[in-house]
Amino acid sequence: MKKDLGILLIFVVLCTVLALLNPRFLSATNLQNTARLVGMFGIFSMGIGFVIITGGIDLSSGSLFSLLGVLLAIGLVDHQLPWLLVVVGVLVLGGLLGLFHGLVITRLGIQPFIVTLCGLLWYRGMANFLADDSTKGFGNAEGFETLAHLATGNVLGVPVPFALLIVIGVVAWVVLHRCVYGRYLLAVGQNEEAARFSGVNTKRVVASAYVISGSLGAVSAIFFAFYANAVQPSSHGSFYELFGIAAAVLGGCSLRGGEGSVLGILIGAALLQVLKNLVNLLGIRSSLDFAVMGTVIFIGVVTDELLKRRKRTRLLRAPGA
C-alpha cells in the first residue's frame, strides 16, 4: 500500500493540473470516455502485471487484440453465429494461447521475451491473413445488439469496461495479496529455486500467469473491437502491450519479478490514459503524444529510484533509535 502512494500522488497531481488548465477534463463526457479507456487498458495490464511478477514478460497482447478482434467479426458478422458462443470462444482462445506461451516457457525453458515476441508476430500475421488485409467492421451489430450495448454501454453511468475493471481489480487484489496463489506467484518471482524447494509447483504457477494474461487480454480485445467498431488487422492494438508493460512498471512491478501490487498497476494504467487525455485537452500536437508519455514515464521511474536511494541512505545513517 505504502509503495503505491508515490504513483497515486503523481496521478492526483496530474489530474489536478489538468483540471485547472482545462475545465473540460472534468466534463461528464470526457470523464466517461477516459474511464472507458482506463477500463479497457487496465484489464489486460493487470494480466501483464501478473506475468511480470513471475519475472516474465508478455509482448503478444497488442497482436492478440487484432487476431481476436478479427475472429470476433468473422464469427458475428460473416457467419452470424450466436454472440454468446463467439464471446466464449474468443475468451477460451485467449486463455489457450496464454497457456501455450506458458507451457513453452516452463517446459522447454525458452525465455518469455522470445516466446511472446513470436506470439506478437504470429497473431498479427494471422489477423492480416484471416481478414485478407482488409478492415473488418461490425456495422450496426445486427443480431448481436446486446453484446454491442454491453461492450460500449454504461451501468449507472459508469462505462462497462471501467466497472468490469473494478470488479476484476478487486478479485485480483484478493488473489495476489491475500490468497495462496498470489503468495506463490510472488515467491516464484522472487526466488524460483527456493519456492521449488518449498514444494511449490513453480512451472504451473508461472504458466498460469500467462493464462491469466491471455484471458484478460481476450476480455480487453472484445472491448477494443467494439470501441473502434471495426478491426483494421495491421494496426489494431499495435503497441498496446507496451502500455500494459508501462502501466505495470509505473505501478511498482519490477521487471526482475517478485514485486508488484494490483492497486499500483491500476493507477499506472489510469495515469497513462490521463496523459493521453492531457495531450488532447492541452492542444499539444498529437504527433507528440508518445514523446510526452515517454517523458512522464521516464520522470516517474527516475524519481522513484532516487527516492528509494535517499531512503536507503537515510536508513543507513539514521542515528540511534
Binding site: 503468495r183 510472488l186 515467491a187 522472487q190 526466488n191 529455486e193 527456493a194 524447494f197 514485486e259
Partner: peptide
C-alpha cells in the same frame, strides 16, 4: 540464500 529462503519475504511468509 539461493535455495532455502525467499529473501525479500518476511519470516512469517
Amino acid at each position: 540464500r539461493k535455495s532455502g529462503l525467499i529473501g525479500p519475504m518476511t519470516i512469517r511468509e
